[in-house]
Design a binder for these strands. Structure first.
Length: 959
RNA sequence: GCGGGAGUCGCCCAGCCUGGUCAAAGGCGUAGGGCUUAGGACCCUAUCUCUUAGGAGUUCGUGGGUUCAAAUCCCACCUCCCGCACCA
């Protein structure tokens, strides 16, 4: 039967809406506060976004059915720069973007025109995303919705950031950023052409003395200063003479330009040709030795300072340039100097001899200094020396130190002695701003930072993490690690949407800093939205009183002009819902948002309001590969809902992967799920609730199995192992139902509708958090009154598990299995099957052995001795084989079954088989099955098989 | 490099936390059968090796160890993937 998903989903969404089922206010019940990272509305959400929200919704719905008063709210994060960047691109008529908006996102053309205003973009996608969330059936309390640029929210952020500053957690300092010189703005990935992240490294500038001048050379390996034998200058380049903070430097034009942004004072004094420098000498800092400047074509003016120090023992470029120079025609005077140069080896590395550069150049078969393989050769030498090398005795006080460690030590030593400086440079040049101009690195020296490097703060956060539930458990160590390396983090920027820094209105609170404690704001936004309070009254005193229980009610009321009753009502609401019981997010937010979320909570709130749980999920793949605009494999969520229905999408996302794994979304999984649900729907539609007075063995069994399933599913969801839970409900349980149907059909029973109704009602109830719409529909078809989403979660009670029933069905299955195996091996067509169960004596021995094994004794010799020493069982010595096999039988069973058997000592195998095996056996194998106990007097045993019978392992004769 | 995760029977993937129901679920593929005018869809059966009695042998990256018992616990190694920041 085909399901009209859309019709059913609309029907139930309307009912939830009418009943206000998900509007949550404080009441007498215990609460759960479930939150998810709110979306950034710069595009419609796709299936990947849907995963996190769906997981959280399942969580919320599950708790609701378990009797909690669940608050699941949602907001929209307008703060940030990407939307601003988009607006600029729309204004610039960027074809790629407009094409994406039009075709990928289906934005109407008139709307796109309005997108030159950033707020219009945010508003549009806000509504788009919200509509998708509603269509997905998320059980959100929409009365609390807000955006992060609402005036009231800004008041809240001001309070947050002021509070942090009062606690001395916000500091000012300098910081390098990617920078557009034209826009006078920092650039991030979203602001560049081709979406490249500006990536920069720190070079050490070693300052060589050249008369009155300083010639700085840029290097990543300051330790090689001990191996410098000459400098490389490109004779083609015209260098600049500049004054840098009162020193006279000679550097390339490009270098001088870069330094203008690096917090240095630069004045231009003149020029000098590279060729003029050739043959002249400079002195090496610290050592005071004179070395010569030589020509090299590999030296580029745009890299570093345009002059390079030469370490031919360890740098392949330098070694090769020297070789080239020796081969070329140069003035005799210079030639003498060149020939006098010997590489100085300063690093000892396993696998290398005196000159690693030479060895590597030869290994790579380098032809000349413009050979492209030189980059790889350099990488290889640097890599090996950096991690495996040690400084030799000619490096003075650094002798014996590992290179990896020496790098920083020597850098600091050089800078301290004014022999060196720092140059920051983009590594992935050219990086172009969307305005077209080339970006640089800029040092901002009035930047505001959250001091996440603070030890006490970290300690507090660690304490919080230690007491938190982190799901899945594997991700916990990652949080500890992040806390470890976290340093100061810029918390303000100069453009974008958001809240201004209260004490420095040039800055806007950065988007990862204004989204860390906003869960608290959900308890207030409700009152803002219904106009109970207005943003102007949200002062420091108000927040201090409501959130921190600080200050005097009457005073607060006086200042805010809000009545004491209302203030207290809001405060009560906050303290009812807080702390956050569960925070959901994708794993990409682990090293930033989720960690900051904890850091900011512990900084601002008392321990009683620290969050309880974090749930982290992996991303969604589309047919096995990452979703990306360039691949064109992004499926907008709303389109998917239209095409397949919300419930199938929810189920497909959840069934395809466990929490932290990437979920692979594909059409097969969707249609598989649809089929499954359609079948379930059809079956359930036929069932009627009816009472069955006498339960048969298989009825008791399936009811027990249902209890087991309830237990498993409940435990799995508590740990957010939703894939496992859903799999149990939909698939794993199916094999139990199949067995049940087999048993029932063998007996030609017609009175099972009631049992199936009961069993499936539990299944549908448990399915309801996962596929809420269709579950309501089936619930209604099953004849239940009321909504399944507000019904009680099926209760697990161990007393409803009939251990004997479970064990005896297993017994029955194993006999049928054995018969099938024999038939398969022997390939005979059975005429008659005879079963012999073990006698009382064997049963007694069996239980004695079972007891011993359960109590831990598994040694055959000891068990045998103990059996013989007992009068009742001593006869067993005639049949040691039986004891050995029995031990093996028992050991190959799960421990629960062993215990069950211990509990049901009086289980009568023969009686059970006479009642239950004949029918199903006839059905399966199409022959009569006869059952004896081996001690029966009238036994039919032509092949003498009966004596092989063991308890729970009857002997079988097939003829 | 630092940190994290993973390696399972042709492929994808479950099981590992909590050792015994594990020759190991499910899906795909393959083979046979049913249904159908045919195809598709769907359903059934088989799918490590050997075996004419329910059995045995060899398997879960490699090599060790603990245990009566290891895919599961411990140690070492190999290979692959992800993150390392001012960006939502």
């Amino acid at each position: 039967m085909k399901i009209n998903w859309k019709e059913i989903e609309t029907k139930w969404r309307e009912k939830w809406n009418e009943n206000k089922d998900f509007e949550t206010d404080p009441n007498d019940k215990p609460k759960k506060f479930i939150t998810v990272a709110y979306p950034y509305p710069n595009s419609p959400q796709h299936i990947g976004h849907g995963r996190t929200y769906t997981l959280a919704d399942v969580h919320a719905r599950f708790y609701r059915m378990q009797g909690f008063n669940v608050l699941f709210p949602m907001g929209f994060h307008y703060t940030g720069t990407p939307i601003l960047g988009m607006a600029k691109r729309v204004e610039a008529n960027d074809k790629e973007l407009i094409n994406n908006l039009k075709n990928l996102y289906d934005v109407p053309e008139e709307t796109i025109k309005e997108f030159v205003e950033p707020i219009k973009i945010a508003n549009y996608f806000h509504q788009e995303i919200k509509a998708g969330m509603v269509e997905m059936g998320y059980s959100i309390d929409w009365r609390r919705e807000f955006t992060t640029i609402d005036p009231a929210y800004s008041k809240f952020i001001e309070w947050q950031i002021n509070t942090l500053r009062e606690k001395n957690l916000i500091i000012q300092g300098s910081h390098p950023v990617g920078w557009c010189p034209k826009d006078q703005n920092p650039v991030s990935q979203h602001d560049t052409l081709g979406d490249v992240e500006p990536d920069f490294t720190e070079y050490i500038l070693i300052k060589f003395n050249f008369g009155d001048y300083v010639i700085p050379t840029a290097t990543l390996r300051p330790e090689t200063i001990f191996g410098v034998v000459n400098l490389w200058v490109n004779p083609e380049i015209i260098y600049k003479k500049v004054t840098v903070n009162n020193e006279k430097w000679i550097v390339s034009k490009e270098c001088a330009y870069k330094m203008e942004f690096l917090d240095k004072k630069i004045t231009y004094d003149g020029e000098i040709r590279g060729s003029e420098l050739i043959g002249k000498t400079v002195t090496v800092p610290h050592r005071g030795e004179s070395i010569v400047m030589l020509p090299a074509s590999f030296v580029k003016s745009e890299t570093g300072t345009g002059i390079v120090m030469s370490v031919p023992a360890h740098a392949p470029f330098d070694y090769q340039a020297l070789v080239d120079l020796k081969k070329s025609k140069i003035e005799p005077e210079l030639s003498i100097k060149v020939n006098a140069i010997t590489p100085i080896s300063i690093i000892e590395t396993e696998g290398y001899g005196e000159n690693p550069a030479k060895e590597t150049v030869e290994k790579f078969g380098i032809l000349n200094q413009n050979d492209s393989n030189l980059d790889d050769a350099t990488k290889e030498v640097y890599g090996k020396e950096f991690y495996g090398g040690k400084l030799k005795s000619n490096t003075e006080q650094f002798a014996g130190i590992k290179v990896a460690y020496a790098k920083d030590t020597i850098k600091e030593w050089l800078i301290k002695n004014k022999h060196a400086d720092i140059l920051l440079e983009l590594t992935n040049t050219p990086v172009k701003c969307r305005c077209g101009s080339e970006c640089v690195v800029k040092v901002l020296n009035n930047q505001w930072f959250l001091n996440y490097g603070d030890k006490d703060w970290k300690e507090l956060a660690t304490k919080c993490f230690d007491s938190m539930n982190i799901l899945p458990q594997e991700i916990r160590s990652e949080f500890n690690y992040v806390i470890g390396w976290l340093r100061e983090r810029a918390c303000a920027r100069q453009h974008g949407l958001g809240t201004k820094l209260p004490w420095d209105k040039d800055w806007i609170v950065e988007s990862l800093s204004d989204s860390v404690i906003y869960m608290a704001y959900y308890t207030i936004s409700k009152f803002v939205n219904d106009k109970t309070i207005v943003s102007n009254s949200l002062t420091k005193e108000f927040f201090d009183y409501v959130f921190l229980d600080e200050g005097d009610l009457d005073k607060v009321s006086g200042i805010t002009k809000i009545s004491p009753d209302i203030i207290n009502k809001i405060k009560k609401e906050f303290h009812y819902f807080y702390p956050v019981d569960s925070r959901h997010s994708g794993r990409d937010l682990v090293p930033n948002h989720l960690t900051f979320f904890v850091l900011n909570h512990v900084a601002i709130f008392p321990q009683s309001n620290w969050p309880h749980e974090i749930v982290v999920n992996g991303s969604v793949l589309m047919n096995g590969s990452k979703m990306s605009k360039s691949m064109g494999n992004i499926i907008p969520l709303r389109k998917a809902i239209t095409d397949y229905g919300a419930d199938p999408i929810r189920l497909a996302i959840i069934i395809s992967a466990e929490l932290l794994q990437d979920a692979d979304f594909n059409m097969e999984s969707i249609s598989g799920i649809q089929n499954k649900i359609e079948t379930l729907f059809e079956e359930c539609s036929k069932l009627k609730s009816e009472k069955l007075d006498i339960l048969e063995a298989e009825d008791r069994w399936i009811k027990s199995k249902t209890q087991n399933m309830i237990s498993h599913v409940t435990i799995a969801i508590e740990k957010m192992r939703l894939r496992e839970a859903l799999h149990d409900i939909l698939f794993a349980f199916e094999s139990d139902l199949n067995w049940y149907m087999k048993r029932v059909n063998a007996k030609n029973r017609k009175n099972i509708s009631g049992i199936l109704h009961e069993v499936n009602s539990s299944r549908i109830a448990m399915l309801s958090p996962f596929a809420p719409h269709i579950a309501e529909e089936i619930w209604e078809k099953l004849g239940h009154l009321g909504m399944v989403s507000t019904s009680r979660w099926p209760e697990f009670s161990p007393s409803n598990i009939d251990a004997t029933a479970i064990q005896s069905e297993e017994y029955l299955k194993s006999i049928i299995d054995d018969i099938a195996k024999i038939l398969k091996v022997t390939k005979i067509t059975p005429q008659k099957i005879t079963i012999y169960t073990a006698d009382l004596f064997k049963s007694k021995v069996y239980h004695t052995i079972l007891e011993k094994i359960v109590s831990g004794q598994t040694n055959m010799g000891i068990i045998m001795k103990e059996l013989i020493s007992d009068l009742d069982t001593q006869e067993v010595k005639k049949n040691p084989d039986f004891v050995q096999k029995t031990i093996k039988d028992i050991l190959s069973e799960p421990t629960e079954i062993r215990r069950t058997k211990l509990e049901s000592k009086n289980f009568n195998e023969k009686n059970f088989l006479v009642n239950e095996l004949a029918g199903i056996g006839k059905r399966e194998f199409n022959v009569e099955i006869q059952i004896f106990s081996e001690s029966d007097s009238n036994i039919y045993d032509p092949k003498n098989k009966a004596k092989h019978a063991r308890p729970f392992k009857p002997a079988i004769l097939i003829e």
